[in-house]
Design a protein around this nucleic acid. Structure first.
Length: 128
RNA sequence: GCAGCGCGGCAGAUGAUCGCCGGUGCGGGUCGAGGAAGCAUGGGCCGAAUCGGUCUCGCACGGGAGGAAAGUCCGAGCUCCGCAGGGCAGGGUGCCGGGUAACUCCCGGUGAGGGUAACCUCGAGGAAAGUGCAACAGAGAAGAGACCGCCUGUUCGCUCGCGAGGGCCAGCAGGUAAGGGUGAAACGGUGGAGUAAGAGCCCACCGCAGUCUCGGUGACGAGAAUGGCAAGGCAAACCCCACCCGGAGCAAGGUCGCAUAGGAAGGUGCAGCAGUGGACGGCCGCUGUCGGAGAGCUGCCCGCUCGAGCCUUCGGGUUGACUGCACGAGGCGCGUAGCAAUGCGCGUCCUAGAGGAAUGAUCGUCAGCGCGGAAACGGGCGACCGCUCCGCGCAACAGAACUCGGCUUACGAACGCUGCGACC
RNA sequence: CGGGGAGUCGCACAGUCCGGUAGUGCACGAGCUUUGGGUGCUCGUUGUCGCGGGUUCAAAUCCCGCCUCCCCGA
């Protein structure tokens, strides 16, 4: 149930670039910035995490990315199907107490679903 | 308790649940090869077992970051390019001996320097091969120098004295490196003797130099007699001497797949002669020779080889997969040689391979350290310490990207040693 | 991951090879010129030479070790 296989990750550079340059919607939280865009083919939501060097050294970046993936994995109902999500990590996220990052992800659930419904109504492939 | 020094080792352990990565095995799907049996029967249809590939899914088993994985500062392995020969550049290293695949590394020693000590630091060859540099200050900065001073002679003047003669100021000629002053540095140091004043001119001690003897593989050390001061500083200035060094890097390189198409612009160079073959000429091919831009010999030159194209810019395509890629100068244990670094022998183990990039998350339990508190217990003459329990806090630096050997930098607790202080 | 380059007044750069004085332009401040501003002229201020060691009498410069930033790549 709570899985995170390769099929649910964004793994190509051009995919990252396309989502970041032309996102369909942006959902911010205090320490994260989520960019979403409809998937090319149907399926569950896919995730890609971006952590720049502003966030910290390689140890800090890897740790934050793991925490974000864990939050994505444990809350599959937060992210609607047929979406690509790129989460950009903001500096300071690694200093949060345990569980706080996951709480931020859960808080974004309503917004994500509303935006996804708007996109479905507007029709596919309408970049913002 | 405070301050400091050092070295090798460690880098929390364990359980549950949910994940990630790759490996092995089994099973399902898929693709390919295969062709049994059957149907039909001159070419066909249908396609089981079995084998292999690949991705995907499921299950099981066992594995999954570091001492620095970091900085990329050295050295190697490995790969490709280059390699007839000679010369010149260029770079690196620099006490001695040993270790090593190699090193700018390590170990042991010598010398110099620092510290009360534990201990630490050193690019530590050559300045009598040559060239160069030393601002400012100072009289003088390299085999120099007389500014003040000291001393002698002499001239003029003044002055004391009855006189012989003396004193002072200034000039001139000379002696003098002891004193002052300048400087980072002033051509041995201290003391004595000596002198008009002085001076290694002479003497003692110290320093220095080459010689001899002894010890040591050697750097060097110890001693002896001699010389009689001559050789100043800087080579992380050029340099000399000795030794070493091709260039690039796993985005190296290899295999497969996909795609584009011999594109455009600019610059620059050239093809002659003779022989011969295609029956002959044009034309083409081959051989020889003259000329020849350029290319190669990964810095340059000589020299050699090739030689009709070469150079620059723009434009176009692919932005995949596998391999290299993990058994190695390998780890651990024991023995052995050695002061040690390390070598040798035997046994044993297989121990990460990702690719927007795995090794994680949550919750317990037990350890570790610090602070505070507590009744009892144990040790000590005592200051006090230990043990137990409770609460709170802390738990660093940091993430493999071809692989090793070092160096450097970052960092937690413990351990050993040195000095000082307080208390008993 | 690998290869290369640069750090000097507030800004942009010289000086570094071959060691002794840190300089130029803009900016800034003051004065003159103008009714005032601008322009022009004169004068002036401003530096841990990225950081820490070492060599030297003396270091921006020579040597070593760090830090930050930038560029390149099949």
């Amino acid at each position: 149930m709570y899985e995170f296989p390769r099929a649910r990750r964004i793994r190509r550079r051009f995919e990252f670039v396309r989502i970041q340059n032309a996102p369909s919607a942006r959902v911010p939280t205090r320490h994260l910035l989520m960019l979403i865009r409809p998937r090319d083919s149907a399926g569950p939501a896919r995730l890609g995490v971006v952590a720049s060097k502003k966030v910290g050294g390689s140890v800090v970046r890897n740790r934050v990315k793991r925490l974000v993936r864990e939050a994505f994995r444990k809350n599959p109902d937060t992210f609607p199907d047929n979406l690509d999500v790129v989460i950009i990590v903001r500096p300071g996220a690694h200093l949060l107490p345990a569980g706080e990052l996951e709480a931020q992800v859960r808080q974004a659930r309503m917004t994500l679903h509303r935006r996804a419904a708007e996109l479905a109504a507007r029709g596919p492939d309408v970049p913002r």
